[in-house]
Simulated scan of single mutants.
Amino acid sequence: MRFWRKNKSVNCPLCYDSIPLSTPVEDLTFIVFDTETTGFKVGADDRIIEIGAVPIRGMQVRDEEFFQTYVNPKRQISQEISELTSITADKVEQAPEAIQAIQSFFDYVQSFEAVALVGHYVSFDQLALKHELKRAGRVLKGMQTIDTLDVIGALAPSYDMRDLERYAMIFGTRIYERHSALGDALTTAYLFTELLRLWNAKTWGDVISASLKSGS
Rank of each mutant, 00 (worst) to 15 (best):
R197F: 07
V115S: 07
E26V: 11
A114T: 03
K74T: 02
A154P: 00
V207E: 01
A181E: 05
V151N: 02
K74I: 02
L164S: 10
V61I: 09
W4I: 01
M1L: 05
A95P: 08
V54R: 08
F192G: 05
H120N: 13
R62L: 15
R75K: 14
I51V: 13
L149T: 01
S209N: 09
K74V: 04
I19A: 08
L28Y: 11
Q76V: 14
Y108S: 10
E64Q: 14
E64D: 14
T188D: 05
F171W: 15
Y108C: 10
S123T: 12
I48E: 04
D27F: 09
S211N: 03
G205M: 02
T69S: 14
I19V: 15
G39V: 11
P55R: 09
L191H: 07
R138C: 11
T69G: 05
G52E: 01
T23C: 06
V25F: 11
E36G: 11
W199H: 11
S9R: 12
T38M: 05
I48P: 07
I102G: 03
M169L: 15
K74H: 15
K74Y: 13
Y108E: 04
C12A: 13
F40M: 13
T188V: 06
K134P: 02
E194H: 07
K6C: 00
S111K: 12
K141I: 05
Y121C: 13
G205Y: 07
Q126T: 11
N7K: 02
I170M: 11
Q110N: 10
Q100I: 08
V92R: 00
L28V: 13
F67C: 04
